[in-house]
Design a protein around this nucleic acid. Sequence first.
DNA 1: TTTCTAATGTTATATTATTACATAATGTTA
DNA 2: TAACATTATGTAATAATATAACATTAGAAA
Lengths: 130, 130
Amino acid sequence: MQKQQYLTKNQQIVLDLVEKSSEPLKAYTILFNVQKKGIKAPLQVYRALDKLVEIGKIHKIESRNAFIACHNSSCQVAKATAFSICEICEKVTEISSAGLSKYLANFKDKDGMKYSKYNLEFFGLCKKCR
Amino acid sequence: MQKQQYLTKNQQIVLDLVEKSSEPLKAYTILFNVQKKGIKAPLQVYRALDKLVEIGKIHKIESRNAFIACHNSSCQVAKATAFSICEICEKVTEISSAGLSKYLANFKDKDGMKYSKYNLEFFGLCKKCR
DNA sequence: TTTCTAATGTTATATTATTACATAATGTTA
DNA sequence: TAACATTATGTAATAATATAACATTAGAAA
């Protein structure tokens, strides 16, 4: 097999669910919701999630152990992600700011090291919760 | 009780261990290493960690579920953290860049929202692993 | 067709984190 | 000091998150 061209059945089932959701979903919430589609075990979910993250279709919100669909058409690979997270209602929004991504992509540390990947999570209160 | 002034026994034991470590430690690794000091249960470790994170003495590396001592004297509160993580050797370094922290502290999203807190994790290869 | 690789299915288990409840220690207020 | 409030502790049980191991299947390439 060369590079996988289409999503597999399990990957598509998981992606459909995550895309329909307005909030980040946890792995076991996903599992519960796809059991009627024939996915029975955690590992089947985690494997689909791993692949979907790898190809940039979804992102993991690390501080929440939850997964959200990518809403940034330019994320073909999961390598530069930024989110805002409301500390009250837990609403999560993907930030797409050209300025921010440019700044971070070019950021060099003291040793002049540049990075191939980053994940940024901002916390605060969303409009509604303020 | 007012604001706690000194660390408690368990907090100090956990902090000592994390500060001595050259790499991020996982909660159960900490537990294993402090059992000789009388800490017996996971919860005792997690409670100490929670407090230490809250007061900024340590930080959690979210993508690794591990804890590292703060090496940035200005981190009195855990509200603005940035790390570089080597994807091969897993070395983690806290980044302290005035430029970066200023940029992120002032970052506003499309709605003009500013954030009270952020966590940024950069990934790449460290000097040794390149 | 044979081979290679990726995906699947399944069971079991490892790892990470919290709930619940009882007790002790310390600070606050009357 | 007594009564109280708050924070920390100890302990057992369990919940939530994630992976290992192994057998099988499916599709693409040689």
